[in-house]
């Protein structure tokens, strides 16, 4: 073998083994644009609302066991959240690079004060972790550039709820693919979550984030527990609904006339064709504002607040007549 061939071989191998240089600098702080999924990002989703989620029967069953008391128990208050949940959070995040001695990018890191674990995307071609290795909230992520898009695959994740506050489950066998594409001051983040136990097909979320020139100084998160449910202290008790007894199972039906099968998260309901199936079946609640089709009354508790839909009366799902600020009269009177 000639020296030339040796050098060529070395160059080729090294070119693939060595960390790729970033095509686009992702560094910076990014803020959410709240008009995307305001309800989800702000007050949180309605209980019993699994619309848009391609759940398996197992996923639906586990979601229906959920009560909002569960994350309040002492043992769960500081548990890490899903690596993908930042797409639904109201707060921003920061991206920075970790560089080697020659300035090459070893990893891109997505960090935020509510992530409770950074997602560290290794760019140095390191091998996959063993299946026996510890799973973490941020998982084990490796990335590569596809044109100007950074694509990462995340494995070794913890069991965690996929969306905020409604109990939609993700298992520890879940994987997430992340695409990061920066166009000027806008960053498109697409997450594609797959789960062999709880999703019949990938759960895809695409959001646009706004670069924040003032930066976001991340307060590194700390978490402390408190005894929020004294009756459970030292009992080992775990709050949950019994199968078939979740009172929120029909919440979307009672409140918005959404067909139960749509609310319960079947894959079919993700697609435009499903609207044809609904036509003639779905009747908007009488109290909805016709000028806001598809939005109905918004989140009940925000009525009358700045940014909330004004002067609407809503079907509140049987919880009483709402007052001028979306509260029950007795609560408003106090």
């Amino acid at each position: 073998m000639t020296f030339t061939k040796t050098a060529l071989f070395t160059f080729l191998v090294a070119a693939f083994a060595h960390p790729a240089f970033a095509q686009v600098d992702l560094t910076g702080s990014y803020q959410t644009r709240m008009y995307e999924d305001y309800i989800e990002r702000g007050p949180g989703e309605f209980m019993g609302n699994y619309t848009g989620m391609p759940l398996t029967d197992e996923g639906r069953a586990k979601a229906l066991l959920y009560t909002s008391n569960l994350p309040s128990i002492y043992e769960r208050q500081c548990l890490p959240q899903s690596a993908g949940v930042f797409q639904y959070r109201p707060t921003g995040f920061r991206i920075w690079s970790e560089n080697g001695p020659e300035g090459d990018v070893v990893a891109w890191v997505i960090g935020g004060d509510n992530l409770r674990n950074d997602i560290r995307i290794w760019m140095d071609g390191r091998p996959a972790l063993s299946p026996n290795a510890l799973h973490t909230a941020g998982g084990f992520a490796t990335g590569k550039w596809e044109g100007d898009t950074l694509t990462a695959r995340v494995t070794h994740l913890k069991t965690a709820w996929i969306r905020r506050g409604v109990g939609i489950p993700g298992s520890d066998d879940t994987t997430i693919t992340i695409h990061l594409t920066r166009r000027g001051d806008l960053l498109t983040v697409m997450t594609i979550q797959e789960d062999p136990h709880y999703l019949t097909e990938p759960h895809v979320v695409s959001r646009v984030w706004q670069w924040n020139p003032r930066g976001t100084e991340i307060a590194r998160p700390q978490c402390n527990t408190a005894n929020e449910i004294p009756s459970l202290e030292d009992t080992g008790g775990v709050p949950h609904y019994l199968p078939g007894e979740n009172p929120e199972e029909d919440y979307m039906v009672r409140t918005f006339n959404i067909p139960k099968e749509a609310a319960m998260g079947h894959a079919e309901t993700l697609y435009p064709e499903y609207r044809k199936k609904l036509k003639g079946v779905y009747t908007p609640p009488a109290s909805c504002d016709a000028r806001r089709p598809g939005y109905c009354c918004g989140w009940i508790e925000t009525q009358g607040r700045p940014g909330g839909a004004p002067n609407l009366t809503c079907n509140d799902g049987g919880f009483g007549v709402l007052g001028p600020r979306g509260r029950r009269p007795e609560a408003t009177a106090k």
Partner: peptide, 27 residues
């Protein structure tokens, strides 16, 4: 690739990779 050349290439590759950053795995 002849064995001798392969060794040369391997050594060269190791040399290049030695300059790569090494961030410790926790496990």
């Amino acid at each position: 690739i002849e064995p001798k050349g392969f060794i040369q290439a391997g050594l060269a590759l190791l040399f290049v990779m030695a300059g790569s950053p090494a961030i410790a795995q926790t496990q």
